[in-house]
Design a protein around this nucleic acid. Structure first.
Length: 548
RNA sequence: GGCGCGUUGGAGAAGCGGCUUAACUCACCAGCCUUUCACGCUGGCAUCCAGGGGUUCGAAUCCCCUACGCGUCACCA
């Protein structure tokens, strides 16, 4: 078989040769330890936590080493492509502070190693496919989908390994004449790799996260180019990461099984293999079993979930960093105010077993971040979040900025600040009682306080209420009311002899609390009252008395 | 079914043959503080590292087998 002739038949007019491309995309001039990383999402319109997870690794590795981090759009499957998906990718990752040094942008490309959309790299793939044909390492296959399914069924029946290989590779040894005729007739075909791998051989993959792995050598004649001439992931990955000069390929562990294909391709071309980093998957516990986070069942997989719930991007980053490098938490404790970018991220510290996604932990981290965020900044964040997700709240919240700033800062100063705010959706619920438009009575009075007793307490309270008092004076008055009405000023005494009292000061102050905040639980009442102001407090207490 | 990866408390994990009586964080529980809730503090939470065999004076750490979980076996990525 004259492979050159076949190559020319399959790819008659190509502008550039492999050598040309090597020159167009030269080795990068970077320091020896600089890492070149990338993410390659496919534009399905769904961008998820796993994408961010790998993006963070790529970002840290590249940017900590003065390397390059780029975005490549892997749009080789037109069936799954969604209009506007690139914008979705860019804006979602942008929201989380992922920045690319080069790659696809909304209106084109940025960088010298493009195009960064695989759909625009057809000529490049064809050039290298042609090279493989010339080497006798690739051939056209005319099998139809029906024929392949039939083959699979036969393999199942015979209990042999599935796939297109050795004696099952029907079109592997077609002669030139046959091929030329079928092509002339316009028969569709795919281009397959002619593998000389052996099922009994193993290949070594030196994975940066997992160490040395022994994998089965690839023996399948896998597809390089689909019948529309577009490459499969395998071929595109190898060509792109070679020409784009990636040093580290960070991808999820589901790629481990097909890694031998990639190794084989790199070796066939005589190219240097990149360093593979196969990351663990994010899992979820269900019925006692771990399973991969799923797009359909788990809303928390989608990045937009965190946007709409109103998590701070920083919180997601820090959570993911604790998952990725467990020493991050220790670092955070010793460097409480440093930006997380200063944390020395390492591949060596990464775990290789599937990680359960832990919302509790995320919320704890979020709380800690918010407690050290100044009120003015919280105001800005909350404002812009609410404008998009809750315009009603936004209008109310922004009507009086000074007021809202004071609201945010209630009991947040000092050695033991409250950590009430977790994420914006939760925050607006928590803060709602400060605003008359949103104020409602959510809780009942304490159990042993009936509405008559409540009125008694509240009337007395109104009589003595004086906003010139300080906290001490104010609470002394509450104590007086408590005593006068036959409640125990000291809760302990009530607990000891409940029959001697109508209740304790807890019941009295909680009655007032419900009237003013609508809730049984709240931050410090006097502090809240001072923010609400004389008029608002009196109105609420009076309303409570009337409403009984 | 083949091939591969993984398995330390409820969760994330540290651990790399003797410093481990298995760190730290979250969750949970109890107590303290306290006018509620939070915050904070104190203590509890794996007699044991999936199970079973080895190697060794000594194993969570090395080797083998078994179990379980996960991934993958497309003209999807």
């Amino acid at each position: 078989m004259d492979y050159q002739k076949l190559a020319d038949l399959l790819f008659p007019d190509l502008k550039f040769s492999p050598t040309d491309y090597e020159q167009i995309y030269p080795q990068r001039q970077l320091a020896a330890n600089a890492k070149v990383t990338r993410i390659g999402p496919s534009p399905t319109g769904f961008i998820h936590l796993g994408n961010l997870y790998n993006a963070i690794i790529g970002d840290r590795l590249a940017h900590q080493s003065n390397g390059v981090f780029f975005l490549r759009i892997e749009d080789t499957d037109s069936k799954r492509e969604v209009a506007g998906a690139v914008e979705i990718i860019l804006s979602a990752l942008g929201f989380f502070g992922i920045n690319f040094d080069e790659g696809a942008t909304i209106d084109g490309d940025n960088g010298n190693y493009g195009p960064y959309r695989q759909s625009q790299r057809k000529d490049i793939y064809h050039c290298f496919a042609k090279q493989l044909v010339k080497m006798g390492k690739a051939y056209p296959c005319f099998c139809s989908e029906e024929e392949l399914t039939q083959m699979r069924e036969e393999q199942m029946a015979k209990q042999v390994n599935f796939g297109y290989y050795s004696e099952w590779a029907r079109d592997r040894n077609n002669d030139y004449q046959q091929i030329a005729e079928r092509i002339a007739k316009g028969e569709p075909y795919v281009l397959r790799f002619r593998s000389d791998g052996n099922i009994d051989n193993t290949v070594i993959l030196a994975d940066a996260i997992r160490g040395e792995l022994q994998l089965q050598e690839n023996y399948q004649d896998f597809v390089l180019l689909k019948s529309d001439g577009i490459p499969t992931y395998h071929f595109a990955h190898v060509v792109d990461d070679h020409l784009m000069r990636s040093t580290h390929v960070i991808r999820s562990e589901e790629w481990l099984a097909t890694a031998p294909i990639h190794l084989q391709l790199f070796d066939t071309f005589g190219w240097q293999r990149p360093i593979y980093c196969h990351t663990a998957q994010l899992m979820k516990l269900e019925d006692g079993n771990r399973r991969k986070l799923s797009k359909r069942k788990d809303p928390e997989l989608a990045l937009k979930y965190y946007c709409s719930e109103g998590y701070l991007p920083e919180a997601i980053w820090e959570y993911l960093l604790t998952v990725l490098n467990s020493n991050f938490e220790e670092w955070r404790m010793t460097n409480p105010s440093d930006p997380f970018e200063q944390f020395p991220f390492t591949i060596e510290k990464m775990s290789n077993s599937g990680t359960l996604f832990d919302l509790d932990k995320l919320q704890d981290i979020s709380k800690e971040i918010l407690v050290r965020t100044p009120a003015a900044q919280i105001y800005d964040f909350l404002k812009s979040w609410a404008e998009k997700y809750n315009p009603t709240f936004s209008d109310i919240f922004c009507a009086d900025k000074e007021y809202s700033l004071r609201v945010i800062d209630v009991n947040r100063s000092g050695d033991r600040p409250r950590k009430d705010l977790v994420y914006w959706k939760q925050a607006i619920k928590f803060l709602s009682f400060y605003f008359d438009e949103l104020f409602t009575i959510e809780d009942n009075y304490p159990e042993n306080i009936d509405s008559d007793t409540a009125c008694e307490i509240l009337n007395k309270y109104l009589e003595t209420l004086d906003f010139n008092d300080d906290q001490e004076q104010w609470f002394n008055k509450v104590r007086e009311i408590t005593d006068a009405l036959g409640f125990a000023v000291q809760p302990k005494k009530y607990r000891k002899n409940p029959e001697l009292y109508r209740g304790s000061i807890i019941d009295v102050s909680n009655t007032i609390r419900v009237a003013i905040t609508g809730r049984l639980n709240s931050p410090d009442l006097w502090e809240i009252s001072n923010i609400l102001g004389d008029k608002r407090v009196r109105n609420r207490v009076q309303a409570a008395i009337k409403g009984k």
